[in-house]
Design a protein around this nucleic acid. Structure first.
Lengths: 240, 240
DNA sequence: CCAAATCTTGACCGATCGGTCAAAATTTTT
DNA sequence: AAAAATTTTGACCGATCGGTCAAGATTTGG
């Protein structure tokens, strides 16, 4: 389900010497990489987890390698050994996040019932907002500030994926199975309404007046979004 | 229409000495402020405009006073003279942005037709996304990273405002004029779908494959959002 | 026209930033 | 066990950060 997505990753040279090229060449990088030692894999995972938290809280420039190192329980120089530069670490993290981002798309398949497919898609995205809010925030922060690191991915991989799924929805519309909406703008609205529960969680909590969003809150929110969107697509005729 | 909203503003002392208190006391501040000289008002406006652009592009920590100063065409020390600290400047900017944020809410009034009121509200928010994308990004960035500067505002002023408008919508539902949706979650979806065209503009452009979003694009997007949301609320029965 | 208030400015400060490096420690391979 | 590759680490570097300050320029008010 998850083919590696962007070609964003940079690989650090074996001795802390970062390969610093602006363009996103790869292929050779995979070859250059030392055979994935067990230690390496373990530490890279620890660092990436810490980086996700710090980048989510503070943004790219606000995050410091020192803070990430402390959260990962390693000396700062160690991060540079594995990821070369702060930007290299950030790009690797983004690459992992983008992988997850597109997976939910698979629900949109021509043979499925539109209402079921869209509901499943929304449920998946809402689950993602609940379980991986930090990843969602890192992604949102990146896009808000210009998406310089993932602009290529947005215009190629994501775009063609959206194009495919838009065709599916146009098929549903052509056979009269749902209201005539612009599929791409439908996706924009679906992304926005589901991710807002992760990215703007503080606002949601403050407006609702609760200290934390429990599973009951998330279930209710999911129901609301599904109801609103399915009705908006002319699916589910009950009520109003 | 616009009463001053958050009580966020800090005022710099007349000689660059910032009044640094963590709590959001005010009242006295207004008195302490020197009589609004014409020079002061002019320069403060220039600085705030530059600050909006830089904070939007780089976030709070990523923005440097030096960069703001250059964009405003003033020496850095000048910014500190007017706003005391970077945080003071940021809070003042946020206060101005919040003022605009709630204004559109006035469309939600009990005597209006639900469909017209919601459409007008969406149109307003979309126009805001188009004309003030930088302000929207500053706000989004603030909330994503914890809303530390405006958490109080979210839990008090905004919350009670939402509470009021939610009552209006509940009234419309009770009289059978629209589908039974949870008003607060409807607002979350309305905010998300409209603001995404400002905050995530790069993503929208890349997915649509166009270099800029012209007025035609925005009009189309507005129509789509209105259609989706009104149908989602059980208003407008045409189609599907 | 003069004194008081306001505004401007370059130089400067300590702290922290991302990144480097070489030497030691450790693990893996032979 | 010896050799090679990999990993760890503290000390260090130049750059930039937010913020300060005092002295001079300018505007304002009586």
């Amino acid at each position: 389900m998850s083919e590696r997505v962007g070609r964003l990753e940079r690989t650090a040279g074996a001795n802390g010497t970062a390969t610093s090229d602006t363009a996103v060449d790869i292929a050779e990088a995979a070859a250059r990489r030392p055979p994935g030692g067990r230690t390496r894999r373990l530490n890279e995972a620890r660092i990436l987890e810490a980086a996700e938290a710090v980048f989510a809280e503070a943004g790219f420039t606000g995050a410091s390698m020192q803070a990430i190192a402390e959260k990962a329980g390693l000396p700062k120089a160690n991060l540079h050994y594995y990821f070369g530069t702060k930007e290299g670490l950030y790009r690797t993290l983004l690459s992992h996040i983008l992988d997850m981002w597109v997976d939910a798309f698979e629900h949109i398949a021509p043979e499925r019932d539109p209402a079921e497919a869209l509901a499943a898609y929304i449920r998946d995205k809402m689950r993602w907002s609940r379980t991986r809010p930090l990843a969602s925030k890192v992604f949102a922060n990146e896009v808000i500030h210009g998406a310089q690191q993932i602009e290529g991915y947005l215009g190629t991989k994501l775009r063609s994926r959206v194009e495919d799924k838009a065709k599916v929805i146009e098929g549903w519309i052509a056979t009269g199975r749902m209201a005539p909406v612009d599929p791409k703008h439908l996706f924009f609205s679906l992304w926005a309404t589901t991710q807002t529960y992760a990215d703007f969680e503080v606002q949601v909590r403050r407006v609702l007046g609760c200290e934390t969003l429990g599973s009951a809150d998330y279930d209710h929110a999911t129901d609301q979004v599904i109801g609103l969107m399915l009705r908006g697509c002319g699916l589910v005729s009950k009520n109003g």
